[in-house]
Design a protein around this nucleic acid. Structure first.
Length: 655
RNA sequence: GCCCGAGUAGCUCAGGGGUAGAGCGCUUCCUUGGUAAGGAAGAGGGCAUGGGUUCAAAUCCCAUCUCGGGCUCCA
């Protein structure tokens, strides 16, 4: 038999038939052969102990720690170890799936199981301990290639109905199964896996949760055990620490600590009570937005929170959205419904009179409060609520105006996100694509024209974007805007959507140059999306330390002794007269305590005043992150603070 | 909606079959102290709600409500 010729990292060589992947790697790279978790042979993922195939020249690449592929193998193998430990501890457990998660910032892998007795978080340490015991024993992961019939036999024999279902769906011919030596675990799995459990040195179980088989609420409820794994203990520890930091930024926690808002049982789940300090922040946000809306020539409209049921029949919400709407309520035997969206109401304004092509575009904007009957389990702080306000706008445009209007929306959006300190913004263009199971409404030429306009608006601005085929709404193409926050999480906020459907349903028209009726397009446009949600994202982004212009208390005046309380009050009065939000802390605490208090409230500036300052008529300025900045006159402080505010500076660096 | 967990003072939490505790906060008093917690005293809850078991229930059981973690990113 001839040797197998092998290429590795640009070098060529050969190995005898029957050699394993690892044997081959050893010839070229001793280090990699020790650290490798798995390998790629001609691009296909292989276990290290797998025999090399005999077909022609082989290009081999080691999958090593520190790479994405490596992490995937590591985490996937750890998921198996988890399942093995669970099976060991709880005989009779049925297995679901157990993939690695690489893009989820919260977890690194999970395994779905059905145990004879329900598990709780208290069981995690026990399972983790068993995993560690098994890891230390360097148990081998063994792969076997067998026929579908054989696999089904094995898993039927083990009473694994869910596995059998998967095998049935996925396998044609042969497939691989994996064992872990000296454990009850067998899985139907593509692999690859690490050679033995000793490679798994840094893992941690994190949470236990319910999960439906295949995400289908009609199917079996399973228990999902989440964990994560890294190449080294150091990486794991660093990640855990960062996770704690993220928890500190939780907007629900900050909302309470900073007294911004509350959600109370007695008032209803998913309904936000805005406290004064949260209220002022919202007001600043809205004021800013109003300025911008004026700049971009929007008009301001106001519509009621409730409208006749028929309206929602015409709009199609009754058919497609009823689950998310509150039940109808009757007044003198006429039914009404709370609005889940503002569009039909804005349409009413458009329809209130005849429109000429000269009148378009009409740009209606409203801070529109809407109500949605979200399932209780999905509610989450400000992020998912049952009543919220949208910075909503609807543009009624002629087809030839789409490009210009969408372009303006993009400019608007970019300016807004920049102002709030989100410098990482990305765009997704969702188009009709190949319509498989989706019905897209409207004429082909409308779609082509609208999609082209959206893409052109992005291109004109040199905005890179991801084009997603088939993800358009059924009523038209759209651009979604995503931002990345300070700790790397992405959020979808704004959206710009073209709509052919509602103008049709409501029979909207304008009179063209030709004196004939024409149908306008609608553009739905929101930048913050839900103000509540945006507020939550923003709070977490800044970790509660809001920019000066948004801070509910911008300046704290802190007298050192009550001899200077009057002076402190006079300083505070001057700041207030300059339209700055100021609080004077006249309690009999020591200065350290007052400073600590202001720091914890994340007040941007503290003005410390004592006898010296009183005498000289000055203030000692302390900035929340930079500390003592020295003294200056009150007028000078006001001047600088106003600049910060008027510039809507993101941090106080320019002070 | 479903699964697991939790609901004790305004907040963070301890306790746990015999009638409720700490720290912070709040009030009052003492203290007037220069850049992240000065001291003392006091007020404040009857342990989410409703049932049940028991001589006795915050404590055990059941139900309900609410909150938290989740609910197919290849096997």
């Amino acid at each position: 038999m001839s040797e197998i010729s092998v290429k590795y990292g640009g070098e060529s060589g050969s190995v005898p038939p029957g050699s394993s992947v690892l044997d081959a790697i050893k010839q070229f790279d001793r280090d990699a052969s020790k650290s490798a978790l798995a390998a790629k042979v001609n691009g296909e993922e292989f276990d290290l102990d797998r025999e090399l195939p005999m077909n022609g020249e082989l290009e081999i690449e080691a999958i090593v720690p520190g790479t994405r592929d490596g992490l995937e193998v590591l985490r996937h193998s750890t998921a198996h170890l988890l399942a093995a430990a669970v099976l060991d501890l709880y005989p009779g457990t049925k297995l679901g799936i157990g993939p690695a998660l690489l893009d989820d910032p919260r977890y690194g892998f999970f395994y779905d199981v059905i145990t004879p007795e329900p598990l709780s978080v208290d069981d995690l340490p026990k399972i983790e301990k068993r995993m560690q015991q098994m890891a230390k024993r360097n148990l081998k992961y063994r792969r076997e290639n067998v026929s579908k019939e054989k696999i089904l036999d094995i898993f039927e024999g083990r009473s694994e109905p869910l596995k059998c279902e998967l095998i049935d769906e996925k396998v044609e011919g042969d497939a691989s199964i994996y064992y872990i030596d000296d454990s009850p675990f067998i899985d139907f799995c593509l692999g690859p896996h690490v050679p033995h459990t000793g490679k798994l040195k840094a893992f941690k179980l994190l949470a236990i949760a319910g999960a439906y088989w295949k995400g289908d609420a009609e199917r079996e409820q399973m228990q999902r055990i989440y964990g994560t794994a890294f190449f080294s203990k150091e990486e794991l520890d660093a990640w855990l620490k960062q996770r704690e930091e993220a928890a500190k930024r939780d907007h629900r926690k900050l909302g309470q600590e900073l007294d911004l808002f509350s959600i109370q049982d007695d008032y209803g789940q998913g309904l936000i009570l805005w406290h004064p300090k949260g209220g002022i922040i919202r007001q600043e946000m809205e004021n800013y937005l109003k300025e911008k809306l004026r700049d971009f020539d929007y008009s301001f409209v106001h519509t009621p929170h409730i409208a006749k049921r028929d309206l929602w029949r015409i709009s199609g919400h009754e058919d497609n959205y009823a689950d998310s709407m509150y039940s109808p309520t009757s007044i003198e035997e006429v039914e009404y419904r709370l609005k889940p969206m503002n569009c039909p109401l804005h349409i009413g304004i458009y329809k209130s009179s005849m429109r000429s092509y000269r009148d378009l575009p009409q740009r209606y904007s409203e801070m529109g409060t809407v109500y949605r009957a979200e399932l209780s389990g999905t509610l989450h702080g400000l992020m998912r609520v049952r009543g919220f306000t949208v910075d909503d706008a609807h543009l009624f445009v002629r087809p030839d105006q789409v490009l210009k209007e969408v372009g303006d929306c993009l400019d608007f959006a970019i300016q807004v996100f920049e102002t709030f300190g989100f410098d990482k913004v990305s765009f997704e263009l969702s188009v009709r694509g190949e319509a498989e199971n989706k019905k897209f409404l409207g004429a082909d030429e409308d779609w082509e024209q609208a999609e082209a306009s959206l893409a052109a608006a992005l291109d004109e601005r040199n905005i890179g974007f991801e084009r997603i085929e088939g993800e358009a709404a059924f009523y038209g193409p759209k651009i979604d805007i995503k931002i990345e926050d300070a700790i790397g999480r992405t959020w979808q906020l704004g959206t710009i959507q073209v709509d052919f459907n509602l103008p049709e349903r409501f029979g909207l028209e304008y009179t063209g140059e030709d004196n004939q009726p024409h149908r306008p397009y609608m553009i739905h446009r929101a930048l913050f999306g839900s103000i509540e949600r945006f507020f939550g994202v923003m709070l977490e982004h800044f970790g509660g330390a809001l920019p000066f212009w948004l801070a509910p208390v911008q300046v704290a005046v802190l007298p050192i002794t009550d001899r200077v309380n009057d002076y402190a009050e006079s300083v505070a009065a001057k700041l207030k007269a300059a339209d700055l939000r100021v609080e004077a802390n006249l309690r009999s605490d020591k200065i350290g305590a007052k400073i600590r208090d202001a720091q914890l409230q994340k007040v941007p500036f503290m003005l410390v005043v004592g006898d010296q300052e009183l005498e000289a008529g000055i203030v000692a300025v302390r900035e929340r992150s930079k500390g003592d900045l020295g003294t200056m006159g009150v007028e000078e402080f006001i001047e600088r603070a106003r600049n910060l505010r008027d510039d809507r500076a993101i941090d106080n660096g320019s002070f």
